[in-house]
Computed example of a mutant assay.
Amino acid sequence: MNDTTPDSLIPYDEIVQDALRGVVTRVLKRIQEEGGLPGGHHFYIAFRTRAPGVVIPQHLLERYPDEMTIVIQHRYWDLEVGPEQFSIGLSFNQMPSLLTIPYDAVVGFVDPAVNFALQFPPKDGEGPSEPPAGPDSPEPPKPDDGGDDDGSNVVTLDRFRRK
């Protein structure tokens, strides 16, 4: 018998990743339709800032030239969920910003309230996402909820990545 597996002419990995990105789309669509997040649910969404179709303010692109993570929890507005991308209003250091993020740019989705996480390989020939962090990774900061912190909605997903 031959121990080599033939190369597939069907891109199963890509099909599965697209289906999993559909989970993100469906969850965001549900939040849009229901007008908010139920219970303690909140999301960390990591994305490649230079992926095709991403629209973010220049100051955020300069601060996060490769990847950033947004928090969707208490303060967001104008969530619009489309078939290829979503847009959302968030505040960064008390500066309101509108972001447009194609699902193909998303590399991570986490709902820590229920310990749910998805991680995606970058699309469109982009390099790999950051390697998983070790067990000593710091807690991500809390999102802007009107407290005295810097108001940033950017956190790291490293603590949710599997080794």
Rank of each mutant, 00 (worst) to 15 (best):
L79K: 07
Q58W: 09
S87V: 03
L60S: 03
R75K: 11
E84T: 15
I70H: 04
Q73W: 02
G82A: 15
S87K: 06
E80I: 08
E62P: 01
G82Q: 13
Q58G: 01
F86G: 02
Y76R: 05
Q85E: 15
G82Y: 01
S87I: 06
W77R: 15
V54C: 07
G53H: 03
Y76K: 01
I72R: 08
Q85T: 06
M68F: 02
M68Q: 09
Q73G: 00
E80W: 03
P83N: 07
V81H: 02
F86Y: 08
I72V: 15
V54I: 00
R63K: 12
E62I: 05
P52S: 08
D66R: 15
L60R: 05
H59V: 10
T69W: 01
P52Q: 13
L79F: 04
R75E: 07
Y64E: 07
V71F: 02
R75F: 13
Q85G: 01
L79C: 06
Q73C: 08
H74R: 14
G82C: 07
R75N: 03
P83A: 15
S87P: 09
D66T: 10
T69N: 10
R75S: 08
P83G: 04
G82V: 04
D66N: 13
Q58E: 14
I70S: 01
E62Y: 06
M68L: 15
V55A: 14
D66H: 09
W77N: 14
G53R: 05
H74E: 12
D78Y: 05
D78W: 09
I72W: 00
P52V: 09
L60P: 00
H74F: 05
H59W: 05
D78V: 09
T69R: 03
L60K: 04
L61K: 13
D66E: 14
E84Y: 10
I56R: 04
T69K: 03
Q85P: 01
Q58V: 12
